[in-house]
């Protein structure tokens, strides 16, 4: 308990230090960078009335974050919907994995900025293109971790399946899937992190309402304090998502 309080206080000190550096930079180094106080004053309206809609691109930060979250949720689900089965297949089949491993290794490091134009060509609309980009960028950790999970099923469990003469379906549902699930969830967690990273890029380029879209618009309108507001929001939401997935993951590990 005491240690927990101590850790909390230490993290507050860390935050205070960073804000201090920020204030110092804005005062002495870059006049364009809004100071922490100025940022707060100009963002107050958006933070204190988070669900207020004043115009298409002028909405409370809560609404903006929600639009982004919904978009991420769709793209992420699409990604794991393809990623998890693909990982299972690649893990189960040596042949398929040898066939597709080089392809995956090449596709994996491609930036969302490169995928988005392709999505726009394919779907001709910004929303499906954004979802495509999120899905295609975020699915790889799920594919790779699931594949790894299938390959590292302990020999004991494989023997149990053989000794009990389980049907292929039971083998899948009672042995393979539960044994792979913790690995899969690690993949999901990493995928969600990437999906949240990608959202900003895709909203910036498509100009859709959301945290990323708002950020880009405010940059163009020279309201720099709102850029900082968006950055902080993105960080806090991303952190929360990761923690939530971490909790689910920990639950699965015990089981």
């Amino acid at each position: 308990m005491v240690a927990a309080i101590k850790n909390f206080l230490l993290s507050l000190v860390g935050i205070a230090l960073v804000i201090g550096v920020w204030a110092a930079v804005s005062t002495w180094f870059s006049a364009d960078l809004p100071s922490p106080i100025k940022t707060w004053k100009e963002s107050e309206l958006y933070v204190l009335q988070p669900w207020e809609k004043r115009g298409e691109m002028d909405q409370g930060i809560g609404l903006m974050a929600m639009y982004s979250l919904i978009r991420v949720a769709k793209g992420f689900l699409l990604g794991i919907l393809f990623g998890a089965p693909l990982g299972l297949l690649l893990g189960a089949s040596q042949l398929l994995s040898k066939m597709f491993d080089p392809v995956i290794q090449v596709l994996r490091p491609i930036s969302p900025l490169a995928w988005l134009p392709l999505g726009l060509i394919l779907f001709r609309q910004s929303e499906p293109a954004a979802l495509f980009t999120i899905a295609v960028c975020s699915m790889w950790p799920t594919v790779i971790n699931t594949m790894h999970g299938v390959r590292s099923i302990p020999q004991d469990y494989v023997n149990v399946a053989k000794v009990l003469r389980l049907s292929p379906w039971k083998r899948f549902t009672k042995v393979l899937l539960p044994s792979t699930l913790p690995y899969m969830f690690t993949g999901f967690r990493l995928s969600l992190g990437i999906a949240w990273l990608v959202i900003v890029a895709s909203e910036m380029l498509t100009g859709t309402p959301g945290v990323g879209g708002f950020l880009w618009q405010e940059y163009n309108s020279l309201v720099y304090s709102h850029i900082l507001l968006c950055i902080l929001t993105i960080g806090v939401v991303g952190f929360t998502l990761d923690r939530l997935m971490g909790l689910i993951e920990a639950k699965l590990r015990i089981a």
């Binding site: 004991d156 469990y157 149990v160 000794v163 009672k174 042995v175 539960p178 044994s179 089981a255």
Partner: peptide, 8 residues
């Protein structure tokens, strides 16, 4: 080593 499935 028992070889029970730990999730069941």
């Amino acid at each position: 080593n028992y070889s029970l499935l730990p999730w069941l």
